[in-house]
């Protein structure tokens, strides 16, 4: 087990280096002078020269990469060209906002997805099962930004129940989190249903039932525990989808998250902030996937990881 975790972490090293190379290359692949890109189009020649020296742009490319990594380790992502403040200071609070939105959505999606999936599986082809199926088909196909606008139209413009944008109170979380969770809820429900149906036909479930156990105990204690294993594996991937969807959801609800910051920074050519946001989001995704892989190894006693 510990050797599996160790091997999994060793495999992380090339990925992290790769992510760093991609983020490093972003600015250098842009047409034109990377120093101008980093300093901003309105920067003075002196400042551009300073940025050039700072990034080591006259040095060979591997030296530049070394400089980039050393600055990263110190937490130095450069200076935002829009606000002239360190990019880290711009990004970090927004990153935390994205994190809270994404985690709440993941919890909503897991809870409702598994609940609905289990109920559907215990009553296959019932009315409830069919309704769930139709909802999940639409839930997967609906663009998240459109769903957000429709929910906003119904619950804040028409009914006036919930705030339409910004953050602050718990009510502000409801619409963005539900919007973001919809797609994942639908997929998790479908996944849970098929996984549960498979498990419920197994011999040990028949045994459990014939022992006279209550149906609820059989479903929850015996079946769900085993059905959860494949579901956990997709949670990591779901998290990536949620981070991608968060960019869109944040735009719809004016949520001050890192996704929106990144898009605004792209449009304003504020590359230090773009680089920092990309780096943090990718790092988070990689770590979550590591966590899910380890969790999977714990959950599945059948698989020995050598």
């Amino acid at each position: 087990m510990s050797s599996y975790i160790l091997r999994r972490m060793v495999l992380l090293i090339p990925v992290l280096i790769g992510v760093a190379i991609i983020v490093f290359s972003m600015v250098r692949l842009l047409p034109g002078d990377p120093a101008v890109a980093m300093a901003g189009v309105h920067a003075t020649p002196e400042y551009i020269a300073q940025v050039r020296a700072n990034l080591g742009l006259d040095e060979p490319i591997h030296v530049q990469f070394g400089v980039f990594i050393r600055r990263l380790i110190r937490g130095d992502l450069g200076i935002s060209t829009r606000t002239n403040r360190p990019a880290v200071v711009e990004i970090w609070p927004r990153f935390l906002n994205t994190l809270s939105l994404t985690f709440i959505s993941l919890i909503i999606a897991s809870f409702f997805g598994i609940l609905v999936g289990v109920i559907s599986a215990t009553r296959p082809y019932s009315l409830l099962d069919n309704v769930t199926m139709v909802f999940s088909l639409f839930g997967v196909a609906a663009p998240v930004f459109w769903l957000g606008l429709i929910l906003m139209l119904i619950f804040s413009v028409r009914l006036g129940w919930l705030p339409s944008s910004g953050m602050g109170t718990p009510q502000h979380f409801v619409l963005p989190a539900v919007t973001l969770a919809a797609h994942s809820t639908a997929l998790i429900a479908r996944m849970t249903r098929s996984s549960m149906l498979e498990v419920l036909n197994m011999d040990y479930i028949v045994t459990a039932r014939s022992k006279g156990l209550m149906e609820r105990v059989v479903v929850v204690k015996h079946a769900l525990r085993n059905a959860l294993i494949p579901i956990v594996t997709i949670l990591g991937l779901r998290f990536g989808m949620l981070l991608g969807g968060a960019v869109l959801t944040e735009t719809v609800f004016s949520w001050p998250g890192v996704g929106r910051l990144m898009v605004d920074s792209i449009l304003a050519r504020d590359y230090p902030v773009v680089q920092g946001s990309v780096l943090l989001l990718a790092l988070l995704f990689v770590l979550i996937n590591l966590f899910v892989d380890i969790l999977y190894a714990f959950l599945d006693p059948q698989i020995q990881y050598g």
């Binding site: 090339p14 790769g18 991608g244 989001l281 990689v286």
Partner: peptide, 9 residues
Amino acid sequence: IMMAFPGML
């Protein structure tokens, strides 16, 4: 490495 980034990102 490519999969270290969520698709949309």
